[in-house]
Design a protein around this nucleic acid. Structure first.
Lengths: 190, 190
DNA sequence: ATCCCATGTGGACGAGCGTACATAACGAGG
DNA sequence: CCTCGTTATGTACGCTCGTCCACATGGGAT
């Protein structure tokens, strides 16, 4: 019952929205710009997404999917005996290394949650999912802390234009990963 | 030669811009909205600030001043023998505790640097200044790391709507403040 | 075969925007 | 006192925006 004239019209609009944000920034996102990018009439975007917030929610959720998949596929992180701090620092380096359009895009949508309550649940999903992934390698508190540090380091690189220093990131992550009384001996195995 | 009709016209416009961003968000900032808030004609805002970026730079710089002053005045942080992690966590709690309009305002301007290169030097000033302040209590690397963690923790609270957990923040900050080989014994006392 | 309604379309409306520009007000230097 | 250039003002233009609505279309239910 879902498929009518254009079964993936909705999806095409989301993809177009992501491209628009990547190219022109969140400020350049409008029903019209998305409609033009997706090559659909204006009314089509307003039909599928009554408000721009709805569209942003869908776009942010899809963008999150992408990064989560990348993290999941890195068995350097999930594999046993892996150096978590080094793995995360390397991942961040890869992410920030090449074309930053994707990074800026995801962060712009993510940061938009500051003023748009509709995006906050999605932003929370993002941090929770990543923390859950990392919690498999440490305790939940440390996992959440690592996510916060990743955010902080990434933000400083993106906002100030400072080049990414992987050794520095690894150092901080290592400090956080180590519990105050020394390295945590056991992972909650069963 | 600087003072003509209205000596602090420029300042009034900046103040109005900050109020506008606080009330309506960065998206609501326009030459007209600022002119209305400052009770000056439209042409006056375009005269003093040719572009909105110019106005944002001035507003962000002024907003930064405010927080830097707060940090400077906390001798709980700068005083000798103070618990840096606890002090920072408490400061963050105060900042996030009451009316968040000011916090959201500063962060919104700060985060806008992601897509507006004109703001990046000002954002860099902000992190550098805070890091320099903290560097007086530890080494420069740790200071920068603490700033990153503050950013990360603050961001998660603001973006996800999670209530601020001071004990949690203190715990992470303490881990970062402690050098990996154990607590740093000496403060660089001249 | 027929009807119904979710889906899709296109245009029009009013509001708000940045910008530009001609003009006025005023302090300083002659 | 008079002139000159900086500072300040008001208005108008062209544009994009979100929203709304009347209408077309065709697949699923009957």
């Amino acid at each position: 019952m879902a498929r009518r004239y254009d079964p993936d019209r909705r999806q095409r609009i989301i993809d177009a929205a992501i491209r628009v944000v990547g190219a022109k920034g969140l400020a350049g996102l409008s029903h019209r710009s998305v409609a033009a990018e997706a090559d659909v009439p204006l009314g089509s975007t307003t039909y599928h997404f009554a408000t721009l917030d709805d569209l942003m929610v869908a776009a942010l959720r899809q963008a999150n999917e992408g990064f989560a998949a990348v993290v999941r596929d890195r068995d350097a992180l999930t594999g046993p005996g892996a150096d978590l701090a080094a793995g995360l620092a390397a991942l961040l380096g890869e992410w920030l290394g090449g074309d930053r359009t994707g990074v800026e895009l995801e962060y712009e949508l993510y940061l938009a949650a500051l003023r748009r309550p509709a995006l906050r649940p999605v932003a929370a999903e993002w941090t929770d999912d990543l923390a859950a992934l990392l919690a498999a390698r440490t305790d939940p508190v440390t996992a959440r802390a690592l996510v916060a540090v990743l955010d902080g380091v990434c933000l400083q690189v993106l906002l100030t234009g400072t080049p990414y220093d992987e050794a520095y990131a690894r150092e901080i992550l290592a400090r956080v990963a180590a519990a105050p009384g020394g390295p945590r001996p056991e992972t909650p195995s069963p």
